[in-house]
Design a protein around this nucleic acid. Structure first.
Lengths: 334, 334
DNA sequence: TCGGATGTTTTTAACGTTCAAAACGTCCGT
DNA sequence: ACGGACGTTTTGAACGTTAAAAACATCCGA
């Protein structure tokens, strides 16, 4: 494996000149540059990243904690990881994976990775309401950026990127309205979830703006599961509210609702429209197809990396991106 | 950030002694060791990984290429990644993600990562029939281990770990047999897929061993999609073969089959049993639940890391692990 | 009391790179 | 011809660690 020294000897220049040829080529006389480059090519030289990192104390690696949660929340993780990885590579960086206990118990792991100089900083995701990680990292002066908001009353520590859940719900409501639905219900999560309240608010506000009823049309589930989604749909139907559209807070809940409709002999898309959230692989796999709100993963990843690597000069460090409505059979297109 | 030098000064020993306290504590006199450890703790010292890597020329990072394929094939990737990550951490290592073009076009990327010393070696997955990567890496002397076989006629280059697909199919057949099914069909892939032929063989052999018919009971799909699965199920039913069980090569195909059964008013699990492969999140989310063959991800990841990091002294470098049948409603338990 | 064996610690020299400063040329205006 | 300005290249030192060898103790048996 060739080193700078060997390239320098071959090109008959000093080691520093070869280094400059790579990092500051404008400093070299054109003919020298060409000669050095020929030697580099000939010897198939590649800079040793460890040596460079030692000298510059920057490793060009970004830590990402792979979540250890129930399957449901993972459904779009591979999409996210791929986008993040690609975005990092566009800046010559890479993603380093690690595992850590959730919450504050995981902080020593983050600290350790940074202290041992395995990573320059972190991308947080799977953000929880009142997530303790942001404050902790900020206090330690460890660089990070969050995918997802913390939903505290106070200002959130550190930069973040998120998808506008309220706008997403509103888009879903609007789409149902445009396809003739007039009694649109919402299936959501417990009040403790900031994300849940955000999406719920979008539904409520858009319904009001369109002059649609909301009273008694919102159900909270205890957890993000099929059964809870089905139960919620059942309670809406049993209450005799004459619901003709359901905006569910997640694809899983939506699927549960779809199952309940089918069980009762109702045809999703025709008798009643349903939408989900996140456009997970599930959405494309259920019977009539589930209309869902896609998160713009490439944009999200791009923003995260831009912010984290500090190339976001002057740009805001809080970015709210718009989801995209992917229409499928569950809302009867056409 | 404390360095060895500072710890050494604080503990009033030489730098090398502190290094030894960490890497070869048995060399120190117990009281010295204690004193050094106190200083380490007090100064909150963490070894700089870049410096160590430079010196030892080993980075303790393992490269993994995040696949850029249609969603279906990703369905268990997050499980795999988590397991791989955890297994790596058990040996003090971590996973570095990267993207690369498929096939031989991606090889320069692998080479580059290794030459620049960003990784010590690679874990390959999404192995394709006649995958060119294995031979190439072996030729270059770059360490790697494969999750999945290459299905060449000749001996496969390099070590691998895989799940016994034939045994999996056999387990599925056996389970259907035990629950009273006697005409068990197989829905698979094109002949060009080694993995497909493996699983097909398992079905055929087990059926024969049990004295069950196979003639006309095997259908090949063009691709791994819902529609193809549905089409295959339809053709089996239309052919009047009186099929009462279906072993599908993937969860997606199985789901397609389930959809077709439901469409025809048949009840999966009661009228006809269906099994899938891989136990993806989908299996738990469809109507009666899909019986499927779970890949033992933790074992797989453990073996991969063990083999790659060379701690597999004398152990075979080709490991075939057994899948586990996860029984759900689609095969009418009880 | 001395040589050797053993156990502990220090010294020296790298690993491959980049930073900062110094040195070397070349050209120009005076 | 000389001083300065600029452009290009080299020198010396450092980043934080570990391998190998040397140095220093201590203890034992002869």
């Amino acid at each position: 494996m060739a080193t700078l020294k060997q390239v320098a000897a071959h090109a008959e220049v000093s080691v520093q000149t070869v280094s400059n040829a790579l990092n500051a080529p404008h400093r070299l006389r054109p003919d020298t540059l060409e000669r050095v480059n020929r030697s580099i090519e000939l010897l198939n030289y590649r800079p040793n990243r460890n040596a460079r990192s030692l000298r510059t104390s920057s490793v060009e690696l970004i830590g990402y904690c792979v979540p250890d949660w129930p399957d449901q929340t993972h459904l779009v993780m591979d999409q996210f990881l791929h986008a993040l990885c690609a975005a990092a590579e566009r800046t010559g960086r890479h993603i380093l994976l690690f595992t850590a206990p959730p919450g504050v118990d995981g902080m020593p792991t983050y600290d350790d990775l940074h202290a041992r100089r395995l990573v320059d900083g972190f991308v947080l995701s799977q953000t929880e309401t009142h997530d303790p990680r942001h404050g902790w990292l900020k206090e330690q002066g460890i660089p990070f950026v969050s995918f997802g908001r913390v939903w505290k009353e106070t200002t959130q520590p550190g930069p973040w990127v998120d998808v506008d859940g309220a706008a997403g719900s509103a888009m879903a409501v609007r789409h149902l309205y445009d396809t003739g639905r007039r009694r649109i219900a919402f299936i959501g999560w417990p009040k403790s979830s900031g994300l849940g309240e955000d999406r719920l608010g979008g539904w409520r506000d858009e319904c009001k703006a369109l002059g649609l009823p909301t009273a008694g049309l919102s159900v909270r589930c205890r957890e993000d599961s099929l059964d809870e989604g089905a139960r919620a749909a059942a309670s809406l139907l049993d209450a005799g509210r004459e619901v003709d559209g359901i905006v569910a807070l997640s694809d899983i809940l939506a699927l549960g609702a779809l199952r309940e409709l089918t069980r009762r002999g109702l045809t999703p898309g025709r008798d009643l429209s349903v939408t989900g959230f996140d456009d997970s692989p599930l959405a494309d796999v259920v019977a009539p197809g589930l209309t869902s709100l896609r998160q713009p993963m490439d944009d999200i990843a791009g923003e995260l990396i831009t912010i984290l690597t500090g190339s976001a000069d002057g740009r805001p460090v809080e970015r709210l991106l718009q989801p995209e409505l992917v229409i499928r059979g569950s809302t009867a297109p056409g």
